[in-house]
Computed example of a mutant assay.
Amino acid sequence: MATRIFKETHFDASHRLMHYQGKCSRLHGHRWGVEVWMEGIIDATSKILIDYNIVKQVVEVYDHQVILNKDDPLAAAILPFQQPVLTNGDPTSELLAEDIRYRLNSFCRENNMDAHVTKVRVWESDGCYAEVDAE
């Protein structure tokens, strides 16, 4: 029998969209919201599908970070001060939702957990979110 869980969390981070024409092409920050839905078979011993804190820890990789496209020249300028989080493409809410889905599914596979993400929603601001479903 499949079990489903839901976890909501937040992180604060800056980003810029270097391939976008408009104010989002400048470095700016958000209080991002993240919603994660997962399902699978609960562990026979712990009776837990996945610890909610693991979901939070996976998302916290972005917290108080500068998130940039790996090809963004700004990444090299920031590197002497801190390691930015680099993405394969502009760090849009759409891309971050996909990245969170990938990171969580990878964690479950690497830890032999029978759990997977069914949906991730990333809120960039009130009323604006991107969502990805399971493949």
Rank of each mutant, 00 (worst) to 15 (best):
D90A: 05
Y52L: 12
Q65P: 00
P73C: 04
I67M: 10
N53L: 14
A76H: 08
V66F: 07
N69M: 01
Q65R: 13
I67W: 03
T118K: 11
D90H: 04
F107M: 09
L86T: 04
K56E: 11
R109D: 15
V61T: 12
I78E: 04
L86M: 03
C108Q: 05
L68A: 13
D90K: 02
F81R: 04
N112F: 12
V55P: 11
I78R: 00
Y102L: 14
V66I: 13
C108M: 11
D72P: 06
N105I: 12
Q57W: 11
V85A: 02
L96I: 14
E110M: 07
S93Q: 08
L79G: 00
P73Q: 09
A75L: 01
F107T: 09
P84T: 01
D90E: 11
V59S: 02
E94I: 09
V85H: 10
D99K: 06
K56M: 10
V61L: 08
L96D: 00
Y52R: 12
V85Q: 07
N105S: 09
T87F: 00
D63G: 06
E60S: 09
H116G: 12
I78G: 01
E98R: 14
Y102H: 15
T118M: 12
S106F: 11
S93F: 01
V55W: 04
A115W: 09
P73R: 01
D71M: 08
K56G: 07
V59R: 05
P84N: 03
A76R: 12
E110F: 09
E98H: 13
D114Y: 13
E110V: 04
I100V: 14
S106L: 12
F81A: 03
E94L: 07
L74C: 02
P91T: 05
N88P: 08
D90N: 14
F81T: 05
